[in-house]
Design a protein around this nucleic acid. Sequence first.
DNA 1: AAATTCATTAGAACAATTCTAAACTATTGA
DNA 2: TCAATAGTTTAGAATTGTTCTAATGAATTT
Lengths: 138, 138
Amino acid sequence: MENKRPFSEAIERLKEVGLRPTRQRLALARLLFDGGERHVTAEQLHNEALGAESRVSLATVYNTLNQFTQAGLLREVVVEPGRSYFDTNTGEHHHFYHDGSGELRDIPREAIELHRLPAPPSGQAIRRVEVIIRVEDE
Amino acid sequence: MENKRPFSEAIERLKEVGLRPTRQRLALARLLFDGGERHVTAEQLHNEALGAESRVSLATVYNTLNQFTQAGLLREVVVEPGRSYFDTNTGEHHHFYHDGSGELRDIPREAIELHRLPAPPSGQAIRRVEVIIRVEDE
DNA sequence: AAATTCATTAGAACAATTCTAAACTATTGA
DNA sequence: TCAATAGTTTAGAATTGTTCTAATGAATTT
């Protein structure tokens, strides 16, 4: 079978970016990367980790999320002060954000056509274009 | 002369939205609205207020900025965790953001053409579309 | 296997933001 | 006009989100 066990897959991803597969990192990596795309806050992930097997401090969750982000395994999305999400989808794409519930939802890159982007101030280059569509209940 | 003194203008704007022109609010309103468009953090505005005449606590600066935002006098722009700006330009427009320096720069609405916006999840309506172009030094 | 070096963890510290009780201002009734 | 009352505003204290750093643990060299 080509199908790798999730466990080994998480290890693989960590090794690829040069992060040692420690107990804590591995537990978080499995929660994040096994089973589809996710948007999580540090707090949420921490609770999940506690709910499962692993004794991990919230600080370690933050550290790990930041390392993963820096390594390109995650992308951080800031939607309001004191609420940032980590998105397992690292490709170019956009988001719906619902203020009331805090729900964040992906929009594929092709779903929005951006024309006529303005040139950045001289000496600067565009790193990424982020669109957030803020929605509310009708 | 048609030209109102900045002082009365700030009072006017406060009255229009039903906020009493208290000493603190007035001082902050003048700093914000006299003389062109601005992007400020709460911290920055607090320092400016201290530098001028007014004894205002940082908490009051936050309260006031939130009230102004709710009243439609300001718009909040969140660019990274722990860094949100208040923008005196409340019309629809977009932003360049430079990570290194924290500089935020307006992009007029017409400078970006957005085609084919996806429909929001049913039961929800689009409240605002925000584009942030993240730039870095070349 | 012991010693040394480098990486990782999480408690403690810090910073941004909000909450609430106290202070102030306006309004009402005498 | 002046108290009494009701409503509003303010800012110190508390809370929450995030980062820092000293202690711990793992890997490597001899």
